[in-house]
Design a protein around this nucleic acid. Sequence first.
DNA 1: GTAGGGTTAG
Length: 506
Amino acid sequence: MLEILASSNHHITHLPSASNDSKPISNKPNHLQILKKCTHLIQFKQAHAQIIKTPLHQSDTYLSKLINSLVGFSDLIYARQVFDQITEPSTFAFNTMIRGYGTNDLGPEGIELYIRMRHQGLNPDNFTYPFLLKACSGLKQGKGVHSLVVKDKRFSSEIHSLTSLITFYCSFGDVGSARLLFDRMPQRNVVTWTGIITGYVKQKRYKEGIELFNQMKNNGVEINELTLVSVLSASANLGALEIGQWVHEYIDQKRILLNPKLGAALVDMYAKCGHIDKAYQVFKVLPCKGVYVWNAMIGGLAMHGYGIEAIERFWEMQRNGIKPDRITFIAVLSACSHSGLVETGNEILLSMRKDFGIEPSIKHYGCFVDMLCRAGLLNEAYEVIINMPMEPNAVLWGTLLNACAVAANVELAEAAMQRLMVLEPFNDGNYVLISNIYAAKERWNDVGRIRKILKDREISRNPGHSLIQVDNIVHEFLVGDGRHPCSEQIYDMLEKVAIIIKEWSL
DNA sequence: GTAGGGTTAG
């Protein structure tokens, strides 16, 4: 990092020299302004080296502000050196260091500092607990902080500390605890609402996320672009086009700036809700296309079977100076998989490491294996799975098992099933698949054997289901479901669709 | 000088 910065050509132009600094008090704000203008660490350090020569600038206040800037540059080592120079660090200085450690994967150091702070008789303020939570590496530690907040009467109802606790619980997947806190909060703001909504969405509890969003609207709480990103993600995954469209209109109406993340969420929503043309329309006019936006577009084209177009966008993004990341390659490889572009897929997987320096992860191999499977190259897929540099997981073996069910390949299916019985012993779908393969080969004894395993292990069969939203109502259907009032018409339509698909594939 | 975000293979 330092080397990169050192080699860049940034120079400080208007830096007053220390010898000219006859009136340090009046010059002090200028110094801080100079530091604030520095965009690179090396620049900052040069400026600081000049300023620090004046004795006044060794004051605790100055040093604390310096730490704050250094934490902004993620230079924790230097920040700590400065911190250690402070004779009597204030709560602000401690907070800043704890924040620095917490946001740079050095949580334990942050917690240690918090303990030292209390030993020195300093009281936490409303910034301390949110930062301390950032430094927690697990639910257990966070619960510890939670109890500190509860005991500290000044903050047990304070919005920042409680909101941070909510997002903390959500980030560790404990939406239940987050919700308990949320429901009991005396006051909530955008961040509180967005935090809990995002928590539900991350846990794939999209419906509950949308419900909370509706409540948020009814309560007249301000909505910002971060709220909308989560809501778009929920509607994308529910296929709830109307909610997504509502968000789009809201963005236009309120003239909310389409930043790359919001833009990507919008493109992704249209793609997942079946409107790839609309997704492309939004994509085209986005003022600022970051790597997220390209990824969403390529992924969208991939899932709609526009493999060639997806690959074209992949090259186009590079011509536009955007560097592909690991997600881009997942999208590109899935494009190859869904469009049968085996040769291209091969080249891309090799090129990832060679030309882009990105080591393929298990997800990349997952796409690659899926591509081989869909192309009917089951033996090749099996070879890749057992020779990959990492331990294959249930998804990889599951992909192969699925393909074996399509091709009625008993031998490889049994190989996959053997691993899946260990990796996913309670996944009912796997047993159903292998049993179907045996049935296709009329191996009724084996079918009975699998059925017995299911019964003995008390594996409940989870019926397949799907969701669709029409006129703001989300309808849920189970396999063979006949409960819907329009059931008959729905099945009629399904038959018609099936006929059309068959005609297409001929 | 507080807290929250998207895309990811069966």
